[in-house]
Design a protein around this nucleic acid. Structure first.
Lengths: 337, 337
DNA sequence: TTGAAAGCGGTACCAC
DNA sequence: GTGGTACCGCTTTCAA
């Protein structure tokens, strides 16, 4: 393997010059710098990770903790993992996976051994045990999601409450007075942090705008087809002609199917808004308005905050809510009669 | 932070004794060993990862490369990632995620910088570019999946060919002479390594046993409901009463639905075998025979092989095929008339 | 603008 | 059974 000594010798300089030339932490004459870079390249020199960790104080590794709950939606979850890894790489960091059910052990271990520079937390629970650990550690920790008690934490997420408000507003503006929220599974409202946040936003705003808001869940399992169908049909029977969907793709399909089966045309007879969907809604049978949840956006910001906190920016240590955006596709129409 | 020096001082011994006591690489008197362990525990001592990498020659990290193809089945994929991480942890290794589209760069980088002890490769393509890289490296690399050209590689996987044979055998034994294989998507047969292996096994054995084997795919997208329904109906029209399913859970549901819709009872009027399913088939509406694909099994073996190769066991460097197991649930019945 | 050298915190060899 | 110590390869201070 190639060491910094070999590079130094081949370039006819000292190892410190090589180090500085490559890190740019000290001015090096243009000429020698280029020579060193050439040599390093031709020798395929790559600094030894261990030596670097030991001498410097950075590992260029972030831990990513994700409790392996069987009931999380795999595609969404994977989108966040990948987005995090890609964002981290762009900033020069690798991702170390921490999948312990008891995430606590893993976090403490990688911190105690100085394996990582920072920790990113996925799939945050309302009463997440990792919150206390984060507060007790010096290692910067960024939550992608907001636990109930976020005091002293650095969090990133879509502003789900605002998204809920936004969805209600658009439907209210269109004259709807009865709205059905096709939501997540019951277990998601208990174990996850974001479904309840969106719900709260929608509920509060519904009261303000004097909207009758009903919530139906997609049953116990993620795609309980009959449960969704029946719930939608009940809503239609009540006279609801406005729907907010905060659910996985399958539920969207079910909703649209059911509406079509009743001869109702989206964007004409009924209004539909998809809230906080992390998949591509343009592949659905009918174009629908959407307030997207973009994993890349959250994850990039999370990585950015981790880096900033490593650089000593303590102002980054707070809750960062990403304002929702409304993308219109003509699926919301004025209420009839 | 706690260093080995502090532990040594507190225990009244030298640092080498601490090192040996903790690693067990040299006999240490029962008494001192216990004292050292107590001190280490009370001081929450954890060896510095960087120092360890530098001094020892091990990082206790495995890289896991997974090209981010959008068309892989997320739940299955995640099951493999998690199973790998869990298996690795049990052997004292952490997992570093490598998601570069051009996995090559990532592999070369982590190897050149000595960041990882070995590499695990997921989602193997028939002509996987990572095969050549693996051959050109000294770092042990284990493929979970078998590329077309596996010369010189260490691979682990379910014996899909044998699984295909086994499925055909059971149906043939029951007297079926016409079988339909409800397979994967077309793109999976092109880009993945295992669907074609199962197909080949089934085809070969079908010829041997003089079975007419038809293959239908689940369309272009993973769950093209109508495509699957039509294909199954066409098979029924042909008179087929035996099905092998090698597909995701949704397709299983569709198949069973369609059969039920035609008044056919599984385990009575028709025979069904699920081949290489990585999900829990017991949650399906009807119990069906299954030749399971157990991610934990493959991943555990993969980690084991990586460790063995690190220990110098070159005999581990070959293709390891896990023999398929047939779990009967009464869904295969003698062919009628 | 560049070089020499002191660590960083372990591992493992060599003595005792 | 235990201790002393020479590295491992790099970063960074101090000097020139």
């Amino acid at each position: 393997m190639t060491t910094i000594h070999e590079v130094a010798e081949a370039a006819g300089v000292s190892i410190s010059t090589v180090s500085y030339a490559l890190s740019g932490k000290r001015p090096v004459s243009e000429k020698t710098r280029r020579r060193i870079e050439e040599v390093a390249l031709s020798l395929a020199y790559e600094p030894d990770a261990g030596a670097r960790m030991l001498a410097g104080r950075r590992t260029q590794i972030f831990a990513l903790t994700e409790p392996l709950r069987a009931d999380t939606h795999a595609p969404t979850h994977m989108a966040f993992v990948l987005a995090t890894a890609v964002a981290a790489r762009r900033r020069g960091y690798d991702i170390l996976l921490l999948t312990d059910e008891q995430a606590s052990d893993g976090m403490n271990r990688v911190v105690a051994s100085h394996l990582v520079d920072a920790i990113l937390v996925l799939d945050v629970a309302p009463d997440d045990e990792r919150a206390d650990i984060a507060r007790s550690m010096r290692t910067p920790t960024v939550f992608i999601g907001v636990p109930d008690d976020w005091r002293g934490l650095t969090c990133v997420d879509l502003d789900f409450e605002a998204a809920g408000c936004l969805a209600i507003d658009r439907l209210a503006d269109a004259g709807h007075v009865r709205v059905t929220l096709v939501g997540q599974t019951e277990v998601a409202y208990r174990k996850s942090n974001f479904p309840r946040r969106l719900l709260r936003g929608a509920q509060d705003r519904a009261i303000e705008r004097e909207i009758a808001l009903d919530r139906v869940t997609s049953g116990e399992s993620a795609t309980d087809a009959s449960a969704v169908r029946e719930a939608v049909e009940a809503a239609l029977a009540r006279g609801d002609r406005a729907f907010i969907v905060h659910a996985v793709d399958d539920v969207h399909v079910l909703l649209l199917d059911t509406l079509a089966a009743h001869g109702l045309q989206v964007g004409k007879d009924v209004s539909v808004v998809s809230a906080a969907a992390s998949f591509d809604t343009s592949t659905l049978a009918v174009p629908i308005d959407v307030i997207p949840l973009v994993p890349q956006q959250s994850c990039e910001l999370a990585v950015d905050l981790a880096v900033r906190r490593l650089e000593g920016d303590d102002l980054a240590a707070r809750v960062h809510l990403i304002p929702p955006e409304y993308h219109s596709a003509g699926s919301v129409v004025p209420a009839r009669g």
